[in-house]
Write a protein that binds this DNA or RNA. Structure first.
Length: 426
RNA sequence: GGUGAGGUGGGUGAGUGGCUGAAACCAACGGUUUGCUAAACCGUCGUACUCCGAAAGGGGUACCGAGGGUUCGAAUCCCUCCCUCACCGCCA
């Protein structure tokens, strides 16, 4: 949620930034409406406080009269309070109305794109921040897409996933199950070595948590919801992990906070279909190792670059061709100020697959979840949050299968061999 | 799931209608003292909104799990919900 304070102070910058997003070309009127509503809120608040103050002091007088036995004086003051309360009602209503209106408008506004975010509406407008400098692997005519390789080498079984749950659910077996476990351990070890504390978080979260990181109300339909217990299945570890610090005021010296967590991620992906969702490209449940950081506002962009380096290192160790995109305004997530996507080349499908998304949310999440810093000088301000996938497994598995296929089986990248226990998956 | 107890500031915990935004202690922070450490002593030590002020600072309002109610006045009384703890039941 955008900070009201900034909307007032840096209105021009915010409007300019929002213009980069699709559907926010005419945002000026709404911003003005917010400011007007906030003015109304302040007026009502002041009036309300003034009357309450009078009631408080009269109530004290009533107490004194009662003590000294002056009953009639007390009674007349009581009438006065009743009057004031009546008068106060209108300000109270105005205040509540203004607050509700503010909240409902603000919650609909996305984050302001960082100045470096390119203009653009669609994924084609994303900027290639770092292109793949090497050769893309050239596969022979006998090369198979990952869903065929999966059958050949007993990696996963789509039909069983359908039988047990439904379409979009994958059952990994033998080689695949082991590869999953190897990747999870590899990614967690790498994150640990980079200074991230490992977290095992709940996979179901309450509405406050989903709101804190911005999944509610923006993406309500994308989460699985357990109605009976009023809980949501997490779409990413970002939700439970970041919410550890909901409603917390951190001391400056406690920063930065670096956390990592492995969780399955659940996404309804309602309305997705077609060739692009085949195999592991888009599934309802996949495994992901997430890295989350809470940073001082002055350091958050340095931290973002550091996260980029970490993710890049993982892809290099997996010996996969990758590229990095800086997302354009139209393709960025609702809560993000700046996002870099990592894409891995899928050799058999001849297309790039997104395997990581690394974002700085600045104060967008922390404003919602009241995650603040108390500086050494005693000032309280919102922290910055960042997160990124490091990495998402399903597509990495697809990519390893396709890019590293040989006549004898799937060659495992060196870094994974100790985790998998063999050099060739066959 | 059943029964009982309870939810107060970073922690322990006092407070049963007005003098309590909240005692006391601990922790933390600043200082005095000190060869160093420790101890002792002094001081500071909630958040949000808002008004005045250039600022320093000062004033007001709200908040004692959440929401509602009673009352001139609620941390304190009543109702609903949530949560925690203990015991029982069930169970990986």
């Amino acid at each position: 949620m955008l900070e009201l304070r900034l909307l007032r102070q840096e209105k021009a910058r915010i409007i300019k930034g929002l213009h980069k997003r699709a559907g926010y070309e005419n945002i000026e009127k709404l911003i003005d409406e917010i400011i007007e509503t906030d003015d109304e809120r302040k007026t009502a608040q002041s009036q309300n406080d003034l009357i309450l103050s009078q009631i408080n002091s009269i109530s004290k007088e009533v107490g004194e009269f009662m003590k000294s036995g002056k009953k009639s004086e007390a009674e007349s003051l009581k009438l006065k309070v009743a009057e004031l309360k009546n008068e106060n009602k209108q300000f109270d209503d105005r205040l509540r109305l203004a607050q509700e209106k503010l909240e409902s408008i603000l919650i609909q506004l996305p984050n302001v794109p960082h100045e470096s975010v390119p203009n653009g509406k669609t994924p084609e407008d994303n900027e290639i921040y770092k292109a793949w400098s090497g050769e893309l692997p050239v596969l022979g005519p006998e090369a198979l897409p990952h869903w065929e390789l999966a059958k050949k080498y007993k990696v996963f079984d789509m039909e069983l996933g359908v039988k047990i749950s439904g379409s979009g659910f994958i059952l990994y077996r033998q080689n695949g199950a082991r590869l999953q476990r190897a990747l999870i351990n590899f990614f967690l070890d790498e994150a640990g070595a980079a200074g991230y504390e490992e977290i095992q978080a709940p996979l179901l979260v309450n509405g406050d948590s989903a709101r804190g990181t911005g999944q509610l109300p923006d993406k309500e339909g994308q989460m699985y919801y357990v109605e009976k217990d009023d809980l949501y299945l997490i779409p990413t570890a970002e939700v439970p992990v970041t919410n550890i610090y909901r409603d917390v005021i951190l001391k400056e010296m406690e920063l930065p906070i670096k956390l990592t967590g492995y969780t399955p991620c659940f996404r309804r992906e309602a309305g997705s279909y077609g060739a692009h969702v085949k195999g592991l490209n888009r599934v309802h449940q996949f495994d992901k190792i997430e890295i989350v950081r809470i940073e001082h506002p002055d350091n958050s962009y340095t931290a973002l670059m550091d996260m980029l380096t970490h993710v890049e290192g993982l892809l290099q160790k997996l010996e996969l061709p990758y590229r990095i995109l800086r997302l354009c305004g139209g393709d960025m997530g609702f809560a993000s100020a700046l996002t870099f996507d990592f894409e891995v080349w899928s050799a058999a499908q001849q297309r790039w697959l997104e395997v990581s998304s690394v974002s700085n949310f600045e104060t967008f999440q922390t404003n919602r979840m009241k995650l603040r810093i108390k500086t050494d000088s005693g000032e309280i301000k919102l922290a910055h949050t960042l997160n990124g996938s490091a990495l998402a497994l399903a597509r990495i598995v697809a990519s390893i299968l396709e890019n590293h296929q040989t006549e004898n089986g799937i060659r495992l990248p060196k870094a994974l061999v100790p985790y998998f226990g063999k050099e060739i998956l066959a």
